[in-house]
Design a protein around this nucleic acid. Structure first.
Length: 512
RNA sequence: GGGCUCGUAGCUCAGCCAGGCAGAGCGACGGGCUUUUAACCCGUCGGUCGCGGGUUCAAAUCCCGUCGAGCCCGCCA
C-alpha cells in the first residue's frame, strides 16, 4: 500500500498539482453528496473586484463538486436589510439623514432604481450572469418580511443568555445587560440600529427607540438579528454546507468562531465548511475597500475583459493568497491564460464560461488586427484567414472577443500599443528626407496587388538595399507615411490589409 | 495581546498537504532571424529554499523555536 501511494505521488507530481477547488470539493463530498454554497455581499456601495472573489471562489467550488459527481448550488444572500453605516464619500450630504435605515428603504442615490440596495445589486447581478455564475438570490429584507426568520428569531430571543455567553467566551466582549440579539426596526424614525428590545411574546417584540418612540415589532420584517447571530441563523434557514468568506471573519474571535458555536449550541446544526480568502489589492493603492473609494466596479470590468479572463485571474490563485491586481499587466495574464488553454489545464476548465467557445487567436493579435481593420469584423476575419483556419466557431469567438479588444484598448491599454491610420496626408507632421522619399517612390513602383504579405515584407529589404539605405530607415519611412510615427504593426500584413493601391498612392504623394 | 498569509534564481511565483537529484516564466548574458508595439528560435548564467535546532537512510517539504514583510480581530469580502 505504501509503495502504491508513493508511485501515485510520483506520477501525479509530473502533472499539475490538484487544484484548490478540487481539494475543497473532495472535502465536501466526504460530508455529503449535496451542497449549498453561500455567498453574501452587502450592496452598500459599488460591488468591486475584491467582492467578486467571494463569488468566484464559491463558483469554482460549485463546479468542482459537480465535476466530482456531487450536486451543488450557489446562493447569494444580499443583505438589503442592513443599515447604512455612514454617509460614504460618494453619497450626497442629504444622505446623512438615512444613516441607520435599511438599505432597501433608502432612495437610489442616482434615482435609477427602486432603492439604494437595488442600485448596487442590479449591475452586480448582471455581471454574475456574464461571468457564468448561476446563483439563487435571496434578499435579506424579503426573507425577514416573508417570515422565514421567524422561528430563529424566537429561538435567539429565548436563548439570549446562551448567545451572550458564547459571544463573551469567544470575543472577550462584555455585553451590556440590556443587550439582545435582535435589532428592531423603528416605525417612527425608520432606523434599524437605534431601538432596544424591552420585551417579547409569541406575537410581538416590544421596543424603545432612541428617537423617543415606543412600539412593537413583528417577527416578520419588524427587525433583524445582529450580524453574528444572523449569519448562523441563515445557515440553518437555507441549509448552507459551505461558505467562502474574507479573512476578517476568520480571525480568532471573529464571526466564524462565534458562528460555529452559535450553530451548534443555539441553532443545533453543523456550521458550513469554511473557505477563507484573502483580499485583492489594487497595484500601488492597497486593498480594495468600498468605504475608501478604492474600487473597480465589477460591472465596468466585465465590459472590458472577457469573462474567462476575469475568472482565470481569480481562480488560478489559491484563495488564501492575496492578489495584486495590476491593470497594466493584464496582457501578461491573458498570455498565461492562452498558454494554459493550449494545455487544457484545470485553471482554464474552471475559468471558461459554459457554452462559450474559445479559439486560438491570441488577444494580442486581435488588438493589432482590430486597429488595422478599424474594428470591422469582416475585415478582421479576412486578415485572420491568412494565419488561421477560420471556421464558424472561430468566427463566433473572434466576433465576441473583438469587442473586448476594442474596449480594452480604449480603457486600459498603454499608449505605445495604440496606433491610428492617417486618412489625410495633411495630418502627417513627420519630415521625410531625400533617401526616404526615394525609397517610398521606388517601393510604390514595385509593389503590386498580387503580392503576398510575406512578399510585401521582403520587398522592403530589397528596395532598401537597391537604393542603399538601411532597412530600419525604410521601415520608419513606411510607418511615418501611414501612421505619422516610426513604429507600427508588421509591415507586410499591415500594407496588405490597408490595400496595396491605397499604399501606392499614399507613398507617391508623400514622396512628392 | 490573539489569529492568518507570505519568505525558494535579479523579478513573479510553482513545488510543501502525501519527505526522494531545487523548478517554470520573465529579466540578464551569448548566438541566429540584417527594426515590429513586452516578436520568434537556440544556448548560458543564476538559489547556504529567511535563520537555528529536531525527527529521518533522506527535509524546501514534517515538528519546535526564531527573524522579517503584509494583513485581520465593532461593521466590512
Amino acid at each position: 500500500m505504501k509503495i502504491f501511494l508513493k508511485l501515485l505521488h510520483a506520477s501525479s507530481a509530473m502533472n499539475d498539482t490538484i487544484h484548490w477547488a478540487d481539494v475543497v470539493a473532495s472535502e465536501l463530498l466526504k460530508r455529503g453528496g449535496k451542497h449549498r454554497i453561500a455567498t453574501g455581499i452587502t450592496p452598500s456601495g459599488h460591488i468591486h473586484l475584491g467582492n467578486l472573489r467571494e463569488m468566484l471562489t464559491a463558483d469554482a467550488v460549485r463546479r468542482a463538486v459537480i465535476d466530482d459527481g456531487g450536486k451543488a448550488e450557489l446562493i447569494y444572500i444580499a443583505d438589503t436589510f442592513d443599515p447604512l453605516r455612514k454617509r460614504y464619500p460618494f453619497l450626497p450630504e442629504k444622505y446623512e439623514e438615512y444613516v441607520g435605515m435599511p438599505l432597501s428603504n433608502i432612495p437610489d442615490p442616482e434615482g435609477c432604481h427602486e432603492n439604494y440596495s437595488e442600485h448596487f445589486l442590479q449591475p452586480f447581478l448582471e455581471s454574475l450572469e456574464i461571468l457564468g455564475i448561476p446563483v439563487r438570490v435571496e434578499k435579506a429584507h424579503e426573507m425577514y418580511r416573508d417570515g422565514r426568520y421567524e422561528e430563529q428569531i424566537k429561538v435567539a430571543l429565548k436563548k439570549r443568555d446562551v448567545i451572550a455567553r458564547i459571544i463573551h467566551d469567544v470575543t472577550g466582549r462584555e455585553l451590556e445587560s440590556d443587550w439582545t440579539p435582535f435589532m428592531p426596526f423603528c416605525e417612527n424614525c425608520g432606523r434599524i440600529n437605534s431601538a432596544k428590545v424591552t420585551g417579547f411574546d409569541e406575537n410581538w417584540i416590544y421596543y424603545a427607540c432612541q428617537c423617543g418612540h415606543e412600539g412593537k415589532a413583528s417577527y416578520s420584517g419588524g427587525g433583524k438579528l445582529t450580524w453574528r447571530v444572523d449569519w448562523a441563523a441563515r445557515w440553518k434557514i437555507l441549509g448552507i454546507t459551505c461558505e467562502p468568506f474574507g479573512k476578517d471573519h476568520a480571525a480568532a474571535g471573529g464571526s466564524y468562531d462565534t458562528g460555529v458555536r452559535l450553530a451548534r449550541e443555539v441553532f443545533k446544526i453543523e456550521p458550513p465548511f469554511p473557505v477563507v480568502y484573502e483580499w485583492i489589492h489594487l497595484k500601488g493603492k492597497g486593498a480594495m475597500k468600498s468605504s475608501k473609494g478604492i474600487v473597480v466596479p465589477v460591472r465596468e470590468i466585465v465590459e472590458i475583459l472577457p469573462p474567462e479572463i476575469i475568472r482565470y485571474l481569480i481562480i488560478r490563485v489559491k484563495p488564501e493568497r492575496h492578489i495584486e491586481f495590476d491593470p497594466s499587466m493584464i496582457l501578461d495574464v491573458i498570455d498565461d491564460f492562452e498558454d494554459e488553454f493550449r494545455h487544457k489545464t484545470r485553471n482554464v476548465e474552471l475559468s471558461l464560461v459554459e457554452d462559450v467557445s474559445y479559439s486560438e487567436v491570441p488577444f494580442r493579435h486581435l488588438i493589432v488586427v482590430g486597429q488595422i481593420a478599424n474594428w470591422e469584423l469582416e475585415k478582421v476575419l479576412e486578415i485572420l484567414q491568412r494565419t488561421y483556419e477560420v471556421d464558424d466557431e472561430v468566427k463566433k469567438d473572434v466576433e465576441r472577443r473583438l469587442i473586448y479588444a476594442k474596449k480594452w484598448l480604449e480603457k486600459l491599454a498603454p499608449e505605445a500599443i495604440k496606433f491610428e491610420i492617417k486618412e489625410e496626408i495633411a495630418d502627417i507632421t513627420a519630415e521625410f528626407n531625400e533617401d526616404e522619399k526615394r525609397f517610398l517612390s521606388a517601393y510604390a513602383e514595385k509593389l503590386s496587388e498580387d503580392m503576398s504579405p510575406e512578399r510585401i515584407h521582403q520587398l522592403v529589404y530589397e528596395v532598401a538595399k537597391e537604393i542603399g539605405i538601411k532597412p530600419a530607415k525604410a521601415f520608419q519611412a513606411i510607418y511615418k507615411a501611414i501612421l505619422d510615427r516610426s513604429h507600427g504593426p508588421r509591415a507586410g500584413y499591415f500594407i496588405k490589409s490597408l490595400g496595396v493601391n491605397w499604399i501606392k498612392e499614399r507613398f507617391r504623394k508623400v514622396a512628392g
